[in-house]
């Protein structure tokens, strides 16, 4: 059966690499938390004008999502060309959908 799977047989070089990878993940997690807190503080404090707040929080959301895709979901790594094609294809369709719905509503 599968009794040999908990032995940690992994070469030290790879283990070190995984560890460095994890460190990068922790940094991106911290940055994501920071972006989230900033967005909530800006809105809760009502210190800025509506015209600036909305673009600003949307940009911060996009940056945060970039961290998710490129670090947490490993899109930055080798061999992720097809996933990138698929997700950007999806994003492109998403933008078209939003544009179309926006145009029929507000034009």
């Amino acid at each position: 059966m599968t009794d040999n799977t908990n032995t940690n047989q992994i070469d030290p070089f790879q283990k070190q690499k995984n560890k460095e990878e994890l460190k990068k993940h922790l940094i991106s997690f911290a940055l994501m938390i920071v972006f989230t807190v900033i967005a909530f503080v800006i809105v809760a404090s009502e210190s800025m004008e509506k015209m600036f707040v909305i673009p600003l929080i949307i940009i911060m959301a996009v940056v945060q999502v970039g961290f998710q895709f490129y670090y947490f979901m490993h899109l930055k790594e080798r061999g992720h060309e097809m996933p990138a094609v698929m997700i950007y294809g999806g994003v492109w369709c998403a933008l078209l959908t939003l544009a179309a719905l926006g145009v029929i509503t507000w034009w």
């Binding site: 698929m86 997700i87 999806g90 369709c93 939003l98 179309a100 719905l101 926006g102 029929i104 509503t105």
Partner: peptide, 20 residues
């Protein structure tokens, strides 16, 4: 990943509807 591309479009239409 292919599935997630499709999910992006699904949520985009829901977001578009909500925004409208």
């Amino acid at each position: 990943w292919f599935f997630l591309g499709g999910e992006t479009v699904l949520f985009a239409s829901l977001f578009g509807t909500y925004l409208a």
